[in-house]
Design a protein around this nucleic acid. Sequence first.
DNA 1: GTGCAGGTGGTACCGCGGTACTACACGGTT
DNA 2: AACCGTGTAGTACCGCGGTACCACCTGCAC
Lengths: 222, 222
Amino acid sequence: MTTVLVVDDQPLQRYGFRILLESVPETEVVGEAAHGGEAVRKAAELRPDVVLMDIRMPGMDGIEATRRIVAAGERSRVLVLTTFDLDEYVHAALRAGASGFLLKDARPDELLAGIRAVALGDAVIAPALTRRLLDEFAQYVPAHRGGHAEDPRLSSLTDREREILVAVGKGWTNGEIAAHFVLSESTVKTHVGRVLAKIGARDRIQAVIFAYDLGLARPSTD
Amino acid sequence: MTTVLVVDDQPLQRYGFRILLESVPETEVVGEAAHGGEAVRKAAELRPDVVLMDIRMPGMDGIEATRRIVAAGERSRVLVLTTFDLDEYVHAALRAGASGFLLKDARPDELLAGIRAVALGDAVIAPALTRRLLDEFAQYVPAHRGGHAEDPRLSSLTDREREILVAVGKGWTNGEIAAHFVLSESTVKTHVGRVLAKIGARDRIQAVIFAYDLGLARPSTD
DNA sequence: GTGCAGGTGGTACCGCGGTACTACACGGTT
DNA sequence: AACCGTGTAGTACCGCGGTACCACCTGCAC
């Protein structure tokens, strides 16, 4: 049994969801909320498996409510549901920690399948949006993930040098790198120097950028 | 009516797909291929709406075949189907231009829904994979798209300081920044110093990383 | 054995980066 | 008028980073 909290400012819309969800045995609507604030409060109180969240609402919108529910560490998964397929919404919702994004014109069985998937910890995206999301994804994700094509400058590095480059990419000073790998600072300097020469960077800053470009370093991987 | 080309090295698997697809009126299997090379050839010849593509095959694999079919500008959409949910496969397939990625353990109706979506130009991802993809997506996509949540450290910066930070993020030296903005190097140092203090970075390297984390700087935006 | 690649370490030197001040001009607020 | 935030600019100082060497050891290939 999957418990659901329905969040929408339109009573009729909530009613429709309730009818649909109660029509199948696996889902149960345990509460409703008409705006973001109520959603956050009821999510904490009712601890539903899934929060069915509208975006456009008076007061606190669905994005912010999603962010707070996720940030609060609630067990609930948030499935954002909207009539608008605007890119910004999708991005904002996903960044807010939503587990899914469906359009309201989805067929009932799609919606139910979505709730089922989200309840299981998976994620769902409306097919119509997935395309654009993937296109963007392909843009952002560095090429070398996907294997095959690796930057020739990278492959010329020895294992040790690659390690050093990663450390440089984390923003570590030579001293920190030396401490971490239990080396003398001189050795680190030697390595760093060779790395810079090999990848064609004039200083460690270029090396950091290089590392980020290739996905060697990752945001907040410290 | 959606025409489908089934690509799999196992005859039995192909047979299974054929039975399933022919069991509904909306899809029709117009051909089969046992490996990548044959898939590329038949896709060009039969011009199916959808290519159901296995990854693991002797000879040319499904990824490469997908790449070639997409690169050839065929009208066919490729739906990759595999037993393995390995990250590398997903990335590689999507980068190769696949319109979808489903697992072979998908329920028949999921598969049919996937084919339907892909035929319409949408894209599908197996729910079990979507989660990980989104997690990565959230990492890669710059924070400022999605608006709302802005790092408080960033908002404390003045316009000029933000400009300077972006320049630092590009890996420019103080001298280069000074030249670019027509300032004295002293002024640049002052600005950089203030930026570092405000964002809590000990040196410009941390600032570069900070800029990348927030998407202020983007790979290869030079 | 000799040679080479890779890893480690050292010395010496220089310059850029960063800090700590101070200073002044401008626009807006009170 | 006094004040503050912002942008500009300067001087002085110090240290880390980077370069240019050289040196030694290990393991592996010839």
